[in-house]
Design a protein around this nucleic acid. Structure first.
Length: 455
RNA sequence: GUGGUCGUAGCUCAGCUGGUUAGAGCGCUGGAUUGUGGUUCCAGAGGUCGCCGGUUCGAACCCGGUCUUCCACCCCA
């Protein structure tokens, strides 16, 4: 029986047109990565579970796709957990591998494992799919590509500056205007928690603060209360909710708020450094904004935090993110290696470009010229010309069957092929070609050299 | 993981409070037009109404489950 085929939730097939557009984005990003001196690496699509589990917080573990052991996996399973129907305890005994959840943790693993072959600072980029057992939504899939660039082995703040430039370079190359690069610093957030005396609740505090633009000031306060942050502390942090003005104005306000926090002041210094550098190295199309509520991303960020917002007219959430993590490789036993990196969300960038009509026309136009098939002799005659055209870097093809003219022309039409050659008996005899421009409808009898000229 | 939502031809969608042979537009195939497409005209093919079960004399329509889509939360690219 034929079964109705389908693909898993949150995955997609890509048509030729979609692949062409996706490649356009990949190629653009790749070209900029390379210009900035990043080198590509690749890592396996699945890792040992130990490498991934526990690296993304409690929520993260839930979203990791686990791979069931092969063979008689129940044989080696944790019988106690099985008996107790305790999935959480049972899982590690029947699953030793898991699909890659992001590119950063595998990269950290890579750095530790290859530390003796790597020349630091190491700048790598990586474009590969990742998998998350999430519930799909618009722009959220269970299989999607990440495009990451990271530097490890340098604490220099110039890297942060470079990444802002890199973001700007990529979005400029994609002709995407209205992008805003939001930055914050973990030290600022730590400073906030410190001055209100809630340092131990830093994560709850920042997660709540992050929702300011979504649930508003009252919503944030309510969530902070629910998480057990003192009313007085919340009052004290109120000025943060209403930071106004440009980058520098906000920094001046921060200086007052964080006057009593050493770590907070360190954060301010870093932000000022970046602001000053970007002043001197102005961005082409993107805007740099300070957003002190920005806390998203993984809890391992220690310094700068980046998030890129799509132009306001397109509602797809963030199209990129990143930050500084001082001790990422520490979890794999390599201490004191600082890293900083950014990520581009290919699928969301795709949605944005699509919605704004920013894909170049040429991206989908492929075959330039189609030869009509009139039969065996004529097909061979056509292929001789096609071979020469290809040597001249022109995409040319022959319709494979000597089908009806209408069918062949229609095929050219639908595939958007701009030129068609009709070469039948008489053309073969005269060693000529009837070249037809499909857009204008004009046609002329020409020799091979003229075809080259016309294309 | 929690709550909700959608699912009818390849695509976009009609289909009355359950009632016989489930429709349209676009697309597709063939013809008008045996070396000329995009326009027009004519004809035709194509549907287990997501899937499974239940209620009913009778289900695309009501009920339950399941899968998928989208949305909110969680989290995030």
């Amino acid at each position: 029986m034929a079964q109705k085929p389908g693909i898993p939730k949150g995955t997609r097939d890509f048509s030729p047109a979609e692949v062409a557009k996706r490649n356009y984005i990949f190629d653009t990003i790749k070209a900029e990565f390379q210009k900035f001196g990043f080198q590509p690496i690749e890592t396996p699509s699945f890792e040992n579970s130990d490498t991934l589990m526990g690296k993304y917080g409690e929520e993260g573990d839930r979203l990791i796709f686990r791979i069931l052991n092969s063979g008689d996996f129940l044989q080696k399973s944790d019988k106690k957990a099985l008996q107790a129907e305790d999935s959480l305890k049972l899982a590690p005994s029947i699953s030793e591998k898991a699909l890659r959840y992001d590119l950063t943790v595998p990269f950290a693993r890579y750095v530790v494992q290859h530390q003796n072959e790597i020349d630091f600072p190491f700048k790598r980029y990586q474009i590969q799919p990742v998998w998350r057992a999430d519930r799909p939504q618009k722009g959220r899939f269970r299989e999607f590509y990440q495009c990451d660039a990271d530097v490890v082995g340098s604490q220099s703040l110039w890297q942060e500056v470079e990444f802002v430039q890199l973001y700007d370079a990529v979005f400029s190359a994609l002709k995407l205007e209205g992008v805003s690069i939001k930055v914050n610093n973990r030290k600022i957030l730590s400073g906030f928690a410190e001055v209100i005396g809630e340092s131990d609740k830093l994560i709850d505090f920042t997660v709540a603060l992050d929702k300011l633009d979504k649930i508003g000031e009252e919503g944030v306060k309510k969530e902070m209360e629910e998480k057990g942050i003192a009313g007085k502390a919340i009052q004290k942090i109120e000025p943060v909710f209403n930071l106004k003005g440009d980058f520098k104005t906000k920094i001046e306000s921060l200086k007052e708020i964080l006057a009593d926090s050493e770590i907070g002041k360190a954060g301010i210094k870093e932000l000022e450094f970046m602001a000053h550098a970007i002043d001197e190295l102005p961005l082409k199309t993107a805007k740099l904004e300070l957003d002190v509520t920005l806390a998203r991303g993984l809890n391992y960020y220690t310094g700068a935090i980046f998030e890129v917002a799509a132009p306001e007219t397109v509602k797809v959430g963030s199209i990129g993110g990143g930050g500084r993590y001082d001790d990422l490789t520490g979890i794999f036993g390599l201490k004191n290696v600082s890293g900083v990196g950014i990520s581009f969300g290919l699928d969301r960038i795709y949605l944005v470009l699509e919605e704004l009509g920013l894909f170049p026309e040429a991206v989908t136009e492929r075959t330039k010229i189609l030869f009509i098939n009139f039969g065996e002799n004529e097909a061979l005659y056509a292929l001789k010309a096609i071979k020469k055209l290809r040597e001249n870097n022109i995409t040319a093809e022959l319709f494979p069957d000597a089908a009806k003219m209408k069918k062949q022309m229609n095929y050219a039409n639908k595939r958007n092929i701009p030129f068609v050659v009709l070469a039948g008996e008489s053309e073969v005899q005269q060693e000529s070609y009837t070249l037809k421009n499909m857009q204008s409808g004009e046609q002329e009898e020409v020799d091979f050299e003229l075809i080259l000229q016309r294309l």
